Simulated scan of single mutants.
Amino acid sequence: MNWSKWLRQIHRAVAVLFTLTVVANFAAMTQGPPPAWITYSPLLPLLFLFLTGSYMFVQPYLERWRASH
């Protein structure tokens, strides 16, 4: 498995984790004010999704740029 496929698989797995943390956050809000660790738990997966998603978005443009130089 090459780097790109590996990164996509991890991105998908983290997307599932992010979704679960958001669902847990909303479920905790129905019980009253949630603890801070539940409120902020989606931020780490979201940061990772942003970084990997940005890389995957820019990757085709980088490949075209490298091929032209």
Score class of each variant (00 low, 15 high):
F57T: 02
R8C: 04
P35I: 03
Q9V: 14
Y55H: 03
R64H: 04
P33M: 15
Y40V: 00
V14D: 01
A24P: 11
H11P: 01
F26T: 02
Q31N: 15
I38N: 10
L43H: 07
G32C: 08
S41F: 04
W65S: 04
H69Q: 15
W3D: 12
P34L: 01
L51H: 02
M1C: 09
T21P: 07
F57E: 02
L51E: 01
V23W: 11
F57P: 04
T52E: 07
T30F: 14
A27C: 10
V23A: 12
A15R: 05
W3A: 15
L46H: 02
G53Y: 00
M56G: 07
T19W: 10
S68Y: 10
P34C: 01
V16W: 04
L49H: 00
R64A: 03
Q59G: 05
Y40G: 00
W65R: 07
A13Y: 15
L17S: 10
Q9G: 14
Q59I: 06
R64C: 04
R8V: 03
V16R: 05
A67F: 11
Y61I: 09
Q59A: 06
F57M: 04
G53S: 02
A27S: 09
L43Q: 08
L17M: 11
I10G: 06
F48R: 15
S68L: 12
W37N: 00
H69M: 12
A27W: 07
V22A: 01
A24R: 06
M1E: 04
T21V: 06
R64S: 03
L47W: 11
M29T: 08
R12M: 12
P34K: 01
Y55N: 03
V23R: 13
G53N: 02
V22S: 00
T19L: 11
T52R: 12
S54M: 14
A28N: 05
P45T: 04
Y55R: 06
S4C: 14
M29N: 08
L44Q: 07
S54A: 13
L62M: 13
R66G: 07
V22N: 00
L46D: 00
A67M: 10
Y40A: 00
A67Y: 09
M56N: 08
A13I: 12
G53I: 01
T21G: 05
R12W: 09
A27M: 09
M1S: 07
R8F: 03
T21N: 05
G53M: 02
L17W: 15
S4V: 10
A67C: 10
W37Y: 03
E63N: 11
V14N: 02
F48T: 06
A28P: 08
Y55A: 03
V14K: 05
G53V: 01
R66N: 07
Q31I: 13
K5I: 14
A28W: 05
R8Q: 04
Y55E: 02
L7T: 02
R66H: 10
P33D: 15
E63Q: 12
W6P: 15
P34V: 01
I38H: 10
W65N: 04
L47M: 15
Q31T: 12
W6L: 15
G53C: 02
L46E: 01
S68W: 11
G32F: 08
L49K: 00
E63K: 13
R66E: 05
P42G: 01
R64T: 03
M29E: 06
Y55S: 03
E63Y: 09
W3G: 13
T30V: 14
L17K: 12
F57K: 05
R12Q: 10
S54E: 06
